[in-house]
Design a protein around this nucleic acid. Structure first.
Lengths: 167, 167
DNA sequence: CAATGAGGTCACTAGGTCAA
DNA sequence: TTGACCTAGTGACCTCATTG
């Protein structure tokens, strides 16, 4: 599955270009927000190599309420962010990548343990996945089917290694 | 990450040595100017030991009457509260270590809460970090990537435990 | 008093581990 | 390879001693 050649891609030039093209900044209630602009992410491909549904819904970029990329902790004092160690306090926040339950704000976005670990491993081991241009829809039940598109989705929703500002 | 051997360095002898190797200063109108090398450090995928850019801009050492870098307008919108005691009283002074917003004069220099806490912990627990000779550039975005260079920077800009009170 | 900074607290996440 | 779980380190916020 994994091409163990070390990857030569750069998250920088790859993921974030799209990201930055699409973003505008807003400030609401003192919290910086990123508003989405219509990012065209739906080029409808034909189903070939990948067996999971094509992603036909535009990925929504971080929204107000996502806490943006600014706040790593305590975005709202009264409501705790979900933490792994306190499962009962988890808000029902979805993983931005696959829709599973987020366990916190990981690499700049709300993400589940799986996508967090996946993103981390990909970077740490500099993994390169078999390219896929099908723009597979990544969901909880199929997220392991296409690593390439999963990682794309990670980048698209804004995961980054240092999730604060990206100047 | 942290080498839990207790460190054997001495802040004094160590810090001041570097200190005295004073480098060039870029000062314009009494305000220190930061040179931007035009690199985007975010999203660099490598997670290895030292992965953040080498510090190629000379650290300007503190001057008598140095109040740090004053920005009329902040480069990035800051939603953080400047200080807990009096949010409005703070000028936009940058942390001498990482460039984040300073929350006051800590350990002899203007520093943010993060660098203040980092320096404090390092001393209190006598932490020794994995050596790094890359002279990593410490910035808000990447300050947690290389503890060694962060601490070096703390020393370099003049943080010391016997600053103001409690001598 | 008010203002300030040292030091403490603890919610939170990055990164590691390892059974599946 | 994945992801549930673990832990060390971080930093926003707090208290309190000190200073003026």
């Amino acid at each position: 599955m994994v091409d163990t050649r070390r990857a030569t891609w750069s998250v920088l030039s790859f993921g974030l270009e799209m990201w930055e093209q699409a973003e505008t900044h807003d400030k609401v209630n003192g919290f910086e927000m990123k508003t989405q602009s219509g990012l065209d992410y739906c080029h409808l491909p034909s189903l070939e190599r990948c067996h999971i549904p094509v992603n036909d819904d535009p990925v929504s970029l971080p929204q107000p309420g996502d806490y943006g990329v600014v706040h790593r902790s305590r975005p709202f004092p009264q409501s705790k962010l979900p933490t792994y160690t306190d499962p009962n306090s988890l808000l029902n926040i979805d993983c931005r990548v696959c829709g599973d339950m987020s366990t916190g704000f990981h690499y700049g976005v709300h993400a589940c343990e799986g996508c967090k670990g996946f993103f981390h491993r990909t970077l740490r081991l500099k993994l390169a996945y078999d390219p896929c241009d099908l723009n597979c829809r990544i969901q909880k039940n199929n997220r392991n089917k296409c690593q390439y598109c999963r990682f794309q989705k990670c980048l698209l929703v804004g995961m980054s290694h240092d999730g604060e500002y990206c100047t």
